[in-house]
């Protein structure tokens, strides 16, 4: 991991969209959340768009962080990058949809799995679906895209080499 010297890190140079979108997503998500909160701090009632901005911020930050975290040596498998982009879009889009759609009905409102449609969408759509898909994806791609036996062996060998070199320098 280079700290500062490279103006164009290998990850962004080597990758392709949406793998390269991680940092822009984190930055835009932070900016959107900040804008939403700042708008709410202004005198008067909070503007309606503040919640929309915050929803976008959540989705962008989730996607960006997931893509950043799943990168290996600056690269990420396109299927994972698209999955993470879709996850953030799904969460943000779901929240925006709930913000935009009017509430419906009293005691005779249609229920879905025992809940009003909007409540069911919040709990099952935004809560449960990504909460099962992403962990399942983690397990399914773990060996190939997260940490293989070869990766571990390589790391342990590198650490051993570094330790020997350090000990050698210390002895010398």
């Amino acid at each position: 991991m280079r700290d500062v010297e490279s103006p164009d890190p290998p990850s962004t140079r080597a990758g392709s969209f949406p793998g390269t979108a991680a940092l822009p997503l984190v930055c835009s998500g932070t900016a959107a959340a900040g804008a939403g909160y700042l708008a709410a701090l202004l005198p008067g009632p909070s503007p309606v768009w503040a919640a929309y901005a915050l929803s976008f911020g959540i989705g962008a930050l989730l996607s960006g962080l997931l893509i950043l975290g799943a990168r290996r040596e600056g690269r990420i498998s396109p299927r994972l990058a698209w999955l993470f982009l879709a996850t953030g879009t799904w969460v943000a889009g779901g929240l925006v949809l709930l913000l935009a759609l009017p509430g419906s009905g009293g005691g005779d409102a249609a229920l879905f799995l025992g809940l009003p449609a909007r409540a069911a969408f919040l709990l099952l759509g935004i809560g449960l679906v990504p909460g099962l898909v992403i962990p399942l994806a983690y397990a399914l791609v773990f060996d190939g895209d997260t940490l293989s036996e070869d990766d571990l062996r390589r790391l342990r060998e590198t650490a051993e080499r570094v330790r020997e070199a350090r000990d050698g320098n210390g002895a010398g």
Partner: peptide, 12 residues
Amino acid sequence: ATLTNALSAWVL
């Protein structure tokens, strides 16, 4: 919490 476990696994 349903999503953040995978998030923390991948990120940290």
